[in-house]
Design a binder for these strands. Structure first.
Lengths: 136, 136
DNA sequence: GTTGTTGCAAATCGTTTGCAATGAT
DNA sequence: ATCATTGCAAACGATTTGCAACAAC
């Protein structure tokens, strides 16, 4: 009597205008966005959009694996689309700007003690960006 | 007319009981602590201690370089003593426990684009700890 | 028609701050 | 005596949630 295709018990997710606007905002940015930035950006297309809805959608998009969170010290969580080529982030200590960094140092998975299973990692570099280091 | 020894304009920092209790709490833990955990731990010696004082001291200890913050996704900022041997953190996706990991992958400083000056980094590994991976 | 989703406002959580009292120097 | 520090409570910013109206399916 089930209409389920698979066997997982996921809730059906509806395709709303607001979800689309939120995804579009993220897709249009070349950097991780704050919830408030997503709201502002998506409100250009959907003025009625509320902040709570942004948070609720970010949460479900995160759970669905469509987006991922980017943590930066002392700042609120930012979000970016998932499935981008593997990269990390660099934050300038002077101008606070965040830049994507492609690639990954080798040997990360072998850092953990024996018996540990590493399935992911987060890496952020700090320092001065090209612009700021030439000024300083 | 100045009584300063050097030329920096740092505020004199007084040696209070509460500061000592906070440092003792951090020194006694083998893992990064949450401000509320620090409060609870330090209150055993100093019941009058308030949470605001914990925060204020963490801030100045941080500025003084005596402690450092540990960021973990979805959780509040934790603190640990600085000047420990260089290490990173591993968080188990199953039991959420945080473990110190000694060492560092090579080549981190060379990841940034030319012109960038890297002076620090944060790395956290995720996966299953030894206990959880043997159960799963 | 059913049920997930929305918008708003109130609630919650972590952290900061104003202020008068206190304690370290 | 001076001045940083304290405790408390109020203020604050970010995120979550209750609820009635609403829109996807």
């Amino acid at each position: 009597m089930s209409h389920n295709t698979g066997m997982s018990a996921e809730l059906p997710i509806k395709n709303t205008r607001q979800r689309h606007a939120i995804e579009a905002a993220l897709a249009g940015a070349r950097r991780p966005l704050l919830p408030a930035e997503i709201l502002a950006s998506a409100q250009q297309a959907l003025p009625e959009l509320g902040l709570a809805t942004v948070y609720r959608n970010l949460k479900s998009l995160l759970a669905a694996g469509a987006i991922q969170g980017v943590e930066l010290p002392g700042a609120a969580l930012r979000y970016e689309l998932a499935h981008q080529p593997h990269h990390h982030h660099f934050q300038c200590r002077r101008c606070q700007q965040v830049v994507d960094i492609p690639g990954c140092p080798p040997g990360i998975a072998t850092m953990a003690p024996p018996g540990f299973l590493v399935d992911g990692h987060a890496l952020t570099l700090y320092g001065l960006c090209a612009a700021c280091s030439s000024v300083a």
